[in-house]
Simulated assay, not measured.
Amino acid sequence: MTDPDHKGHRQRLRERFRNTGEQGLADYELLEFLLFSALPRQDTKPIAKALLQRFGSFSAALAAPRERLKEIKGLSDISIDSLQAVHAAIARYHRAELNERRLLDSWSKVIDYLQASMEHSSIEQFRVLFLDKKNGLLADEVQQTGTVDHTPVYPREVIRRALELSATALILVHNHPSGDPTPSRADIQMTQKIIDIAKPLGIEVHDHVIVGLRTNVSFRGLQLI
Score class of each variant (00 low, 15 high):
residue 60 A to F: 07
residue 66 R to H: 10
residue 53 Q to G: 10
residue 15 E to T: 14
residue 179 G to A: 09
residue 38 A to R: 01
residue 92 R to L: 10
residue 42 Q to I: 07
residue 184 S to C: 10
residue 36 F to M: 14
residue 27 D to S: 15
residue 98 L to T: 04
residue 212 G to L: 01
residue 116 A to L: 08
residue 101 R to V: 09
residue 74 G to I: 06
residue 175 N to L: 03
residue 219 F to G: 01
residue 106 S to W: 05
residue 120 H to N: 12
residue 15 E to M: 11
residue 206 H to C: 06
residue 158 V to I: 15
residue 186 A to V: 14
residue 87 H to G: 04
residue 169 A to Q: 05
residue 198 A to G: 04
residue 83 L to R: 01
residue 198 A to W: 01
residue 13 L to W: 00
residue 129 L to Q: 04
residue 76 S to C: 14
residue 210 I to F: 03
residue 57 S to L: 07
residue 135 N to K: 08
residue 182 T to E: 11
residue 159 I to R: 02
residue 144 Q to Y: 12
residue 71 E to R: 07
residue 76 S to H: 09
residue 49 K to Y: 04
residue 143 Q to P: 01
residue 98 L to A: 04
residue 4 P to A: 12
residue 147 T to R: 13
residue 141 E to M: 13
residue 18 R to G: 11
residue 180 D to H: 11
residue 213 L to I: 01
residue 68 R to L: 14
residue 197 I to A: 00
residue 196 D to E: 13
residue 34 L to Q: 04
residue 180 D to V: 11
residue 193 K to H: 09
residue 174 H to E: 05
residue 114 L to Q: 07
residue 199 K to F: 05
residue 149 D to V: 10
residue 138 L to C: 07
residue 155 P to I: 10
residue 210 I to S: 01
residue 24 G to I: 05
residue 42 Q to T: 12
residue 179 G to C: 07
residue 47 I to F: 05
residue 78 I to H: 12
residue 21 G to V: 08
residue 149 D to W: 07
residue 187 D to F: 05
residue 60 A to W: 03
residue 27 D to F: 03
residue 209 V to C: 02
residue 22 E to K: 12
residue 58 F to L: 12
residue 193 K to G: 01
residue 116 A to R: 00
residue 83 L to C: 08
residue 47 I to H: 01
residue 41 R to M: 10
residue 111 I to W: 03
residue 124 E to W: 01
residue 38 A to G: 12
residue 210 I to E: 00
residue 175 N to C: 05
residue 2 T to G: 03
residue 61 A to V: 02
residue 142 V to L: 11
residue 120 H to Y: 15
residue 177 P to G: 09
residue 49 K to A: 08
residue 217 V to M: 02
residue 14 R to D: 13
residue 16 R to I: 07
residue 116 A to Y: 02
residue 20 T to G: 08
residue 172 L to N: 03
residue 72 I to K: 00
residue 28 Y to I: 06
residue 199 K to V: 04
residue 34 L to D: 00
residue 86 V to Q: 06
residue 62 L to V: 07
residue 172 L to R: 01
residue 23 Q to E: 14
residue 129 L to H: 02
residue 84 Q to F: 00
residue 7 K to Y: 08
residue 181 P to T: 09
residue 108 S to Q: 15
residue 102 R to A: 14
residue 10 R to Q: 10
residue 109 K to D: 14
residue 225 I to G: 02
residue 32 E to M: 11
residue 30 L to E: 06
residue 219 F to I: 08
residue 124 E to D: 10
residue 186 A to P: 00
residue 184 S to W: 13
residue 154 Y to A: 07
residue 172 L to T: 04
residue 8 G to L: 14
residue 205 V to W: 00
residue 27 D to I: 03
residue 40 P to M: 10
residue 27 D to H: 11
residue 162 A to H: 03
residue 189 Q to N: 10
residue 221 G to H: 06
residue 176 H to E: 04
residue 15 E to R: 11
residue 137 L to Y: 04
residue 44 T to N: 03
residue 133 K to E: 14
residue 48 A to P: 00
residue 16 R to H: 08
residue 71 E to Y: 03
residue 116 A to D: 08
residue 154 Y to V: 13
residue 17 F to Y: 15
